[in-house]
Design a protein around this nucleic acid. Structure first.
Length: 468
RNA sequence: GCUCCCUUCGUCUAGAGGCCUAGGACGGAGCCCUCUCAAGGCUUAAACACCGGUUCGAAUCCGGUAGGGAGCGCCA
C-alpha cells in the first residue's frame, strides 16, 4: 500500500508555525515511506477564505520547500461531489433533513447548558417524514446512538468515545454547501489518504468522521494527532508572540533549513541529535516517535540553529540572502564575491541575516557619522600616530590581503611599541565608524585598499580638525 | 457544565521496571582564548506535579488528586 498523507489548511490566514510543522510531518512521513503528499485547500467557508491567504500558504510552503506530489485541490471545486455523497447518505438512511431554525437550536443549547449538560442536537427531526413548508432544510448525519468509537491514534494510542456523546452533525447547510467534517471524509476517501496527520485540536472531530466513513462503507485512514505549539510563555500562540507567519521568519532573517530543523525537533526527537539535514529528517522521522504533550517555542534555540546554518552554509549562496536583506534596508549589491566574503566574515557574529545586514552596512556604503563615544576614545591625538603609520604602510603595501595587512599591523605595533589593540581599535573605528566589526585584517581586506585609505584620510582629518 | 487530551531542568527533550547519585541541547553562571563583537573550548547550577498501589526494585505499570489544554457552530 502506498502511503498518502495530506496537509489541509483552510485559507483564512497565513501559514503559521503550527501549520508549518503539521505540513512538515505530513511531508516527512510521505517521503520516508516513498509515498505521496497531497495539498488540499479547505475553503468551504467562503466568508472567511481569501485568495490572498491561499497565496500566503503556497508561498510559505514554497519557502520551506515542502513540495506536494498532488494538488493543490480546492474544496470549493468539489461541491458536486459532496452533494452526490450527501444524497447517497440520505438514500441509504444515514442522513436526514432537519428543519430546525437557528433560534430553536440556540434555545436547545441554552437549556442544556442550564441543566449542566453537554450541548448537543437531540435528533428531533430524525423521525420527520414530511418537509416543513417554506423552510430550506440542512442535512444531518445520523450518528449511531449505541456503542463506542475508538481512534487507534498513532501518537496517543487508543482513544475511546461513547457514541452517545456524539450528536447528529450537519453535513450540508440550508444553502446546500457542505461542512467541514463531511468534506474531510469525502476528500480523504476520494484522495485515498492513508494517514491523517493533524493537530490534536481535531481529536474530538475524529469519532464523527470515523462514523461517517463507516456509514459509507469505507475503511478509514490511520490517524496521528500532533500536540499543539505554544508561544514562548507557554500560552496559546497568537500575534502577540511575534512571528506567527512563516514568511515573517524570512523577514526576520531566518533560513528555511533552520526553521525546519527547529520545527522537526519540536515534538519529535531522535535520541540526543539536534541537527538534522533534510535527508536525515526523511530517513529518521517516524510518527511513533512524536510526543504527546504541547511544546512552547524557544526563540533562542531557533536563533542558535539559524546561526549554525549560517556558519555551515555555502557563503556564496548565502550571499544572495544577505543581498535580499541589504536591499530591505536600502542597499543594492550585486557583487557576489564581496557578499560571500562578508557572509564569511560575519557568520560567527550574526544570528540572523537581518542582523548581519545591519552590521554590514559599512562594507557597502559610506557611513555618515562616527559613533561619538567610539570616536572620542579611539580617534584622537594619542592614536593619530598609529593611524598615520598604518596609512603609510598600507599605501606602500605590495598587495592587498588579510595576511599582508596583518603583517603591516604587526610591523606597526613593533615600531610604535604598543599593543595590537591600540592600533586595531582606532583602525576599526576609522573604517567602520564604530567599535564592532570582524577581525580588522579581514575587514580591511574586504573593504579594499581604496576605501580603506579614503576612510583613514577621513579619520585623520577628523582628528586634526577636532584638535584645532 | 460535559467529553477528550496532556504533565521529566526556565525551554526543547532522552528515558519503554534495575544501565538513572535522571543524559543531551538552548538559555544562565564561571573560567580559558582574544584587536572589538562574536565564535570556540572547559566547568557548573537546574527537573521525574502530588498521593496511594503493584513489585525485591518505578521517572517508567495501575488508581486517584491537582494543574494545564482542546472540543461541545448551518467555523475549519
Amino acid at each position: 500500500m502506498t502511503i498518502r498523507t495530506r496537509f489541509a489548511p483552510s485559507p483564512t490566514g497565513y501559514l503559521h508555525i503550527g501549520g508549518a510543522r503539521t505540513a512538515l510531518y505530513c511531508w516527512l512521513y510521505a517521503r520516508h515511506h516513498g509515498g505521496q503528499f497531497v495539498l488540499r485547500v479547505e475553503d468551504t467557508d467562503r466568508e472567511r477564505s481569501t485568495d490572498a491567504a491561499v497565496q500566503a500558504i503556497l508561498d510559505g510552503m514554497a519557502w520551506l520547500d515542502l513540495k506536494q506530489d498532488e494538488g493543490p485541490f480546492y474544496q470549493t471545486q468539489r461541491f458536486d461531489r459532496y452533494r452526490e455523497v450527501a444524497q447517497q447518505l440520505l438514500e441509504q438512511g444515514h442522513a436526514y433533513h432537519c428543519y430546525c431554525s437557528k433560534q430553536e437550536l440556540e434555545q436547545m443549547r441554552a437549556d442544556q447548558m442550564a441543566r449542566k449538560q453537554k450541548p448537543r442536537y437531540d435528533g428531533r427531526c430524525r423521525q420527520r417524514t414530511e418537509p416543513v413548508a417554506g423552510v430550506a432544510p440542512v442535512i444531518r448525519f445520523k450518528n449511531p446512538e449505541q456503542g463506542r468509537t475508538v481512534i487507534h491514534d498513532l501518537v496517543h494510542g487508543d482513544i475511546v468515545f461513547e457514541n452517545s456523546e456524539l450528536d447528529d452533525l450537519i453535513i450540508a447547510r440550508s444553502d446546500g454547501t457542505p461542512t467541514y467534517n463531511f468534506t474531510v471524509v469525502v476528500d480523504d476517501m476520494d484522495m485515498r489518504i492513508t494517514h491523517v496527520i493533524r493537530g490534536d485540536d481535531h481529536i474530538n472531530n475524529t469519532p464523527r468522521q470515523l462514523n461517517i466513513f463507516k456509514a459509507l462503507g469505507v475503511t478509514p485512514p490511520e490517524y496521528a494527532h500532533l500536540p499543539m505549539i505554544l508561544g514562548p510563555d507557554g500560552t496559546k500562540l497568537s500575534k502577540r508572540h511575534g512571528a506567527v507567519s512563516v514568511m515573517q521568519y524570512r523577514e526576520d532573517g531566518f533560513l528555511p533549513e533552520a526553521v525546519l530543523n527547529y520545527l522537526v525537533r519540536l515534538g519529535w526527537s531522535h535520541g540526543d541529535q539536534e541537527i538534522f539535514s533534510r535527508e536525515e529528517m526523511v530517513a529518521l522521522f517516524d510518527i511513533t516517535d512524536v510526543n504527546k504533550s504541547a511544546s512552547a517555542i524557544n526563540p533562542d534555540k531557533l536563533l542558535w540553529l539559524n546561526q549554525h546554518y549560517i556558519k555551515q552554509g555555502d557563503f556564496m549562496q548565502l550571499g544572495a540572502e544577505l543581498a535580499w536583506h541589504l536591499e530591505r534596508i536600502g542597499i543594492r549589491v550585486d557583487d557576489a564575491k564581496k557578499l560571500a566574503a562578508v557572509v564569511g566574515a560575519q557568520a560567527e557574529r550574526a544570528k540572523t541575516f537581518k542582523d548581519m545586514a545591519a552590521a554590514s552596512r559599512f562594507f557597502f556604503e559610506e557611513f555618515t557619522d562616527y559613533d561619538a563615544q567610539a570616536a572620542a576614545k579611539n580617534l584622537n591625538v594619542e592614536t593619530l600616530p598609529a593611524l598615520r603609520d598604518m596609512q603609510s604602510r598600507l599605501t606602500a603595501s605590495d598587495g592587498w590581503s588579510a595576511a599582508l595587512i596583518h603583517a603591516a599591523l604587526e610591523a606597526c605595533v613593533a615600531a610604535l611599541g604598543v599593543k595590537l589593540g591600540k592600533v586595531a581599535q582606532p583602525l576599526r573605528v576609522a573604517v567602520s565608524g564604530g567599535t564592532v566589526s570582524p577581525p580588522i585584517d579581514i575587514t580591511l581586506e574586504i573593504l579594499g585598499r581604496e576605501t580603506v585609505l579614503k576612510r583613514l584620510e577621513r579619520a585623520v582629518h577628523h582628528i586634526e580638525s577636532a584638535a584645532r
